[in-house]
């Protein structure tokens, strides 16, 4: 995040990332700007800071949705590259910032910035998503983001002895739920039909989603493609 002094500097930001050329930074910015949602999310910025006052991440990190909206509104290519590589993963995506009196959606801008960062294989995004691949695997393949068997003591030690107790009783507790769509299942949240999953796989291939995964994590991509293609061919 640029220093406070830089934030107040009315000129454009200095080049803090000489490892990338200006042309490359500009190309990334244009990719953000060309997203179909960009103009719905940014209408200019008063610098009022209302978004910052509502932002949880601004309380805990050196992070500001105002700086992001400002940089985008001024098309400050260098600053936008700083944001792409240093800030976007701090956002909690709560959308408290949509209180913006200018009707901006800084959280939405961050979503687009993240997408562009991933599509272009920026290392900072790969680092931020380390340890997250298993969740992507689960949601893309099973159609559920989370499942009971993810609640393991090594993964959630800070949740206390409840997790230990849960993982010891998981199988029987899961059978003791009255809903037919859930009862007994531990590797998915609810039962998703095979036909439904095949339709979901079609969406991932047809929407260009798989290209994003390929940039993010090649081995995850190979794994997903192998399983999904086999299932689609068998259908």
């Amino acid at each position: 995040m640029p220093t406070t002094q830089e934030n107040w500097n009315p000129g454009k930001a200095a080049n803090r990332h000489p490892e990338a050329t200006y042309e490359e930074k500009e190309r990334l910015f244009l990719e953000v700007k060309n997203d179909v949602r960009y103009h719905d999310f940014l209408y200019g910025c008063y610098e009022c800071g209302i978004c910052v006052s509502a932002c949880p991440s601004a309380r805990f990190y050196d992070f500001s949705p105002r700086v992001i909206a400002q940089a985008m509104a001024r098309e400050d290519v260098e600053r936008i590259y700083d944001i792409l590589t240093e800030d976007i993963w701090n956002c909690a995506q709560c959308f408290s910032c949509v209180r913006c009196p200018r009707q901006n959606n800084p959280g939405g801008l961050i979503t687009i910035l993240r997408e562009v960062s991933l599509k272009n294989g920026l290392q900072e995004s790969k680092d931020a998503l380390q340890g997250y691949s298993r969740v992507i695997y689960k949601v893309m393949l099973k159609g559920n983001q989370v499942s009971p068997d993810m609640l393991q003591p090594d993964f959630f030690p800070d949740w206390g002895p409840w997790v230990q107790n849960f993982s010891q009783n998981m199988h029987v507790w899961r059978k003791a739920i009255p809903m037919d769509s859930i009862r007994g299942l531990t590797d998915v949240a609810w039962r998703v039909e095979r036909k439904t999953l095949l339709e979901l796989y079609t969406i991932w291939f047809e929407s260009g989603n798989m290209d994003i995964i390929k940039e993010l994590d090649e081995s995850l991509y190979d794994l997903l493609v192998e399983v999904m293609q086999e299932e689609l061919e068998d259908a």
Binding site: D35, V36, R37, Q93, T111, R114, E115, S117, L118, L129, Y132, V135, I136, V139, M140, G143, N144, Q145, V146, S181, A189, W190, R191, V192, E193, K195, T196, L197, L200, I203, W204, S207, G208, N209, I212, I213, L216
Partner: peptide, 22 residues
């Protein structure tokens, strides 16, 4: 229903590993 998937929004807000069309 069992002909229902997650909206996948949690994943999208967490990782952006999808896109508007998906």
């Amino acid at each position: 229903p069992t002909d229902q998937t997650s909206c996948t929004g949690w994943n999208y807000y967490a990782s952006a590993a999808s896109n508007a069309v998906g």
